[in-house]
Amino acid sequence: MIQPPSASSAAESVFRGYLMLKRKEKEAAAFTANGLPIDRSIKIEKSQAAKRAEVNRNLVAYSFIAPNFIGFAVFTLVPIVFAFALAFLNWNGNTEMTWAGLDNFIYIFKNEMFLASLKNTFIYTIGTVPLTLVVSLFLAIVLNQKIRGRNFFRTVSFFPYVGSLVAITAVWNMLFNPSMGPVNEILMRLGVENPPRWIADNDWAMFTIILFSVWKYMGYYMVIYLAGLQGINSELYEAASIDGVNTWQKFWYVTLPQLKNTTFFILIMLTIQCFKVYDIVYMLAGAGSGALSEATTVLVYEIYNSAFRYWRLGVASAEALVLFAIVLVVTIIQFRLEKD
């Protein structure tokens, strides 16, 4: 059938156009189909090589991390997760675990010894942190001066930190022995009629422990302050000298602000360290009886007792979570303060 030419041509042109379009598409498709595989294959080869290199790079990196990370993950991360779960369970380590809900937390906050340990730990921290901070800063500033025997003094002030705890607590208990110790002998010669009974007196026990801690740790934090001081640009001091600033002003307007980061770091480290105190207290106050009384008990001692004396692992974990929560909150607060 012959169609009218116009119509047919029109139709044809449309059709051709359609075909052309189709062909173009096809061509395009062919082109891409032609192009792409090659393109793709290049890309695949490229990405395979790159991937292989990347995998290789990752593997090398993982091989560096693995020895530490595997140990760390299995023996630190897993127990941390487990600790959170355990706080909500009843378990004595042998029989089956049962769900406890918040019972463990309710129990510990009604337990007088635990509350006492909380109070004592706070007192210990509030006493130890500022004292250690001030003393170690002062010591560091002095030992940063050009003075004779600087290295000797630095080394000596580190002895209490290095010294074995059992040994140095034994010495302290003898030095501060209420009836025979040289400290009280000296105090009596100096005219103090009733020298404190130190660790043996409930009112003095915590103070004695704080005193010991400051003595033990000031050398360590002094070194960290010393490192901070050596990082201060000396031009700042020179500029201050030219401006006729006195020593005290230099300390207040140059040294202290420049040490802000160091102080912040020490503050966090010290606070955490104070909240987890155990062995110092145990060896000073528990030396005789091997147990801590209500006047000296601390958080970690309660955790230890709940777990390894009474085998109430859920309770121990609840107490441990309280310790963790305190440390976390203190750290967050200090970070906030740092920002302001």
Binding site: V78, P79, F82, A83, G93, I303, A320, L323, V327
Partner: peptide, 29 residues
């Protein structure tokens, strides 16, 4: 490498967790 930041964060986060807080489950394990 892949996961560097996440892994390192894991390390840093645990520095703040006192050992005494997980010594009990660690002992049981």
């Amino acid at each position: 490498f892949k996961g560097r930041n996440a892994l390192f964060l894991g390390y840093v986060a645990t520095i703040a967790v006192p050992w005494q807080a997980y010594m009990v489950p660690q002992f049981m394990m």
